[in-house]
């Protein structure tokens, strides 16, 4: 085979590409929401819970941050059924991606939270807010605003890492590419195409995150400068 590229050979497989694209987008949107929510809970509990809870969550964060995502995925999908916990591929992908994003984001958030002065929380209480109210308005939201750029990057890293879920037969963008190249033997063309799609996804994600951030953290802009 000569070094000629022929993208027209991909035309008959548009529906597969669309299916894979949809799966990747849904996986990303859902796990970004669940992952970041879980991260808030983990970050909160790592500061405020009983010592043994803190210790356990610390273990979860460290193990997740120091092992490859693909191994976490394999452990959940292949390993857990060995204990009698049966899950299908897409659920395993959801769980693995959520746990992965949550561990990294919790650590990022923790840095943002610890930058809040203790006196501010007490000031909030003194103004008559409940513990939860003052935590939310004084600590959490400003912390979120402070580390928002890092959270964007981390969510994008998890989206790009999701290419690996094709290995447990989730029909995502990469799986679609693997499927197509096994039919038409045009591996380079199809991988080049979906790499471009991932690049656009990453770009689109950063853009939409920043739009959301501009609205949500609008009143924080002064403080951030």
């Amino acid at each position: 085979m000569g070094p000629t590229l022929d993208f027209l050979t991909l035309l008959p497989y548009v529906s597969e590409l669309l299916k894979g694209f949809t799966t990747t987008v849904i996986l990303t949107v859902v796990t970004t929401l669940t992952g970041l929510s879980l991260a808030v809970a983990v970050a909160y509990l790592r500061v405020n819970a009983q010592p043994w809870v803190r210790w356990g969550l610390g273990g979860y964060v460290e193990v997740t941050r120091n092992t490859p995502f693909i191994v976490q995925l394999f452990f959940i999908f292949f390993g857990l059924p060995g204990l009698g916990i049966k899950i299908d591929a897409i659920t395993a992908a959801f769980i693995a991606m959520t746990l992965n994003l949550a561990a990294y984001s919790a650590e990022i958030l923790r840095a943002g939270i610890s930058a809040t002065a203790k006196g501010q929380l007490e000031a909030g209480r003194a103004l008559g807010m409940t513990t939860l109210q003052s935590y939310r308005h004084v600590v959490l939201v400003p912390a979120f605003a402070r580390v928002y750029p890092a959270l964007i990057s981390q969510s994008i890293i998890v989206m790009l890492g999701s290419a690996v879920v094709s290995q447990i037969s989730v029909f995502d963008l990469t799986y679609a590419a693997n499927f197509i190249q096994s039919r038409n033997f045009r591996s380079f063309e199809v991988y080049l195409l979906i790499t471009l799609v991932y690049l656009l996804l990453a770009f689109g994600m950063r853009r939409s995150f920043m739009l959301v951030g501009k609205r949500v953290f609008a009143y924080q802009q002064g403080e951030q400068r």
């Binding site: 790009l160 591996s187 380079f188 790499t195 991932y198 990453a202 770009f203």
Partner: peptide, 15 residues
């Protein structure tokens, strides 16, 4: 930074 490492691997290997 904007593409999956897996795709970089595939493109070099299959490319």
């Amino acid at each position: 930074q904007g593409t999956p490492l897996l795709m970089q691997l595939f493109l070099i290997f299959f490319g």
